[in-house]
Computed example of a mutant assay.
Amino acid sequence: MNQRDVFLKELRGETIGSVSAQSSSDEMFQNQVLRPILKLQNELFIASFNNYISKYKGDFYSQSVEKKLATIENAIQKDIKFRNALKGMIIGLFTTDEYLLYIKNSSSLNKRMMSMLIERLKSQIQLFENNFNTD
């Protein structure tokens, strides 16, 4: 394992969630790789979504909570540029071996990744208030 891989694993920390002999490879990847990265990158995701809504969704702050939740989901599912930027924030913290695993099943893992990220942002809806300063 090279220096970068060791650094990334130490930076991300421990597995989040249970992994057992019965776990699927996608579930193991999710708990050993994706969850720790999502947790580590949380503040960056919050800042990124705040920037997204300030640029593209000026009416976001006046929306109902239900509409705000739908906006989060739509932004990540339908705005390909934004989605790809978020994916890059995650994939950039993969080790080389994790990346090789990821590309074998990227479609399924992308769905998991984005679904987890949507739920993470939705659960922190209170952080998306009109007092975000981009300066």
Rank of each mutant, 00 (worst) to 15 (best):
D5S: 15
D5R: 07
D5T: 06
V6T: 09
V6E: 04
V6R: 04
F7R: 07
L8D: 00
L8S: 02
K9H: 08
K9L: 14
L11G: 03
R12Y: 09
G13Y: 06
T15P: 05
T15F: 09
T15S: 14
I16V: 13
G17M: 11
G17E: 07
G17W: 07
G17D: 07
S18M: 07
S18V: 04
V19P: 04
S20C: 06
A21E: 05
Q22N: 15
Q22K: 14
Q22R: 14
Q22Y: 12
Q22T: 10
S23L: 15
S23Q: 13
S25W: 05
D26M: 09
D26H: 06
D26W: 02
E27W: 04
E27Q: 12
M28I: 15
F29G: 04
F29S: 04
F29T: 03
Q30G: 14
Q30E: 15
N31D: 04
Q32A: 13
Q32M: 12
Q32Y: 07
Q32L: 12
V33N: 03
V33M: 03
R35G: 03
I37D: 05
L38N: 15
N42S: 13
N42F: 15
E43V: 07
E43W: 06
F45S: 10
F45C: 11
A47K: 13
A47F: 10
A47H: 09
A47W: 06
A47V: 07
N50V: 01
Y52V: 01
Y52K: 07
Y52H: 06
I53L: 07
K55F: 05
Y56V: 00
Y56P: 01
K57G: 03
K57R: 08
K57V: 00
G58Q: 14
G58N: 13
G58I: 08
F60A: 02
Y61I: 02
S62Y: 10
S62Q: 15
S64T: 03
S64M: 03
S64C: 02
S64F: 00
S64H: 01
V65H: 04
E66R: 14
E66C: 09
E66K: 14
K67R: 08
K67W: 00
K67S: 06
L69Y: 02
L69M: 08
T71K: 04
N74H: 11
N74G: 11
N74P: 01
A75N: 02
A75W: 00
A75P: 00
A75K: 01
I76G: 07
I76N: 08
I76F: 05
Q77H: 08
Q77A: 12
K78C: 09
K78H: 11
D79R: 05
D79E: 05
D79L: 04
I80E: 14
I80V: 12
K81F: 10
K81W: 06
K81N: 12
F82P: 01
F82R: 09
R83P: 03
N84C: 05
N84A: 08
A85S: 13
L86F: 02
G88D: 11
G88W: 06
G88V: 02
M89P: 02
I90W: 03
I90S: 07
I90D: 05
I91E: 14
